[in-house]
Design a protein around this nucleic acid. Structure first.
Length: 209
DNA sequence: ACGAAGATTATCT
DNA sequence: GATAATCTTCGTG
């Protein structure tokens, strides 16, 4: 069961395991899907960079406090960002999904992001992938990945040849929580945000065959 | 009604 | 790498 999956492991391990898993969105325009290629773990009350740091709780981050597998969507600078709540109800940890390799419905994603210069730029960032999916409101927030129009397939997907760990992006803190290697991505995959061009592998995109 | 916050993006150098 | 533009949500009055 999906809830158990997100409540049993530690959040850092779950963030790594999410790489290669398939995300589906049953959108009004048709089924859209992609493989997760980049994630970040946020470790709750102790994590200075987390929305739930020091137990901060409000309607905005309520989803983090709910059961594992709850959808957490919030906005920043007008962008919508997608997360999975981890750990049982009351433990406010989660995983941000930062990069997606399109699988089904790429043409529709292109319609949602007509100005993307390349197909890689359709979904190589947390705000970009939500725009590509066409999710531009909070109606899925606090729902879960089992019942709603957004689902995760945890039993199929691709296997990364190599997983890179790095510090998280865009967090406004200094010190150990800034430096902590809690960002994970599929090495050499072109849908990872801010990856150098020279690091790309356009033959296999970083997946096992 | 207003203001602040903010896990970004696009577009430069 | 730096910078400006960005806009929704929520807390306060």
């Amino acid at each position: 069961m999906l809830q158990d999956y997100f409540e049993q492991g530690d959040t850092t391990t779950l963030a790594r395991q999410l790489l290669g898993k398939q995300l589906f969105y049953h959108s009004p325009a048709g089924v859209l899907s992609g493989y997760i290629v980049e994630t970040e773990a946020y470790l709750g009350e102790l994590d200075r960079a987390a929305h739930a740091f020091a137990g901060h709780r409000s309607p905005k981050n309520e989803a983090l406090y709910q059961a594992g597998g709850t959808i957490y969507i919030y906005t920043i600078y007008g962008q919508y960002l997608l997360n999975v709540s981890t750990q049982p109800q009351g433990v406010p940890q989660g995983i941000l999904i930062r990069g997606l390799q399109p699988h089904l419905g790429q043409a529709i994603m292109r319609q949602h992001r007509p100005h993307a210069r390349t197909d890689f730029e359709l979904t190589n960032g947390p705000g970009k992938l939500m725009a590509a999916l066409g999710i531009q409101d909070l109606s899925l927030n606090l729902q879960n990945y089992t019942d709603s129009a957004l689902t995760l397939n945890l039993t199929a997907g691709k296997r990364p040849l190599k997983i890179e760990a790095a510090s998280r992006i865009g967090i406004g803190v200094q010190g150990k929580w800034q430096a902590a290697p809690l960002r994970f991505y599929v090495a050499h995959n072109p849908f990872v945000s801010k990856i150098p061009k020279r690091a790309l592998n356009l033959e296999n995109y970083g997946w096992q065959s």
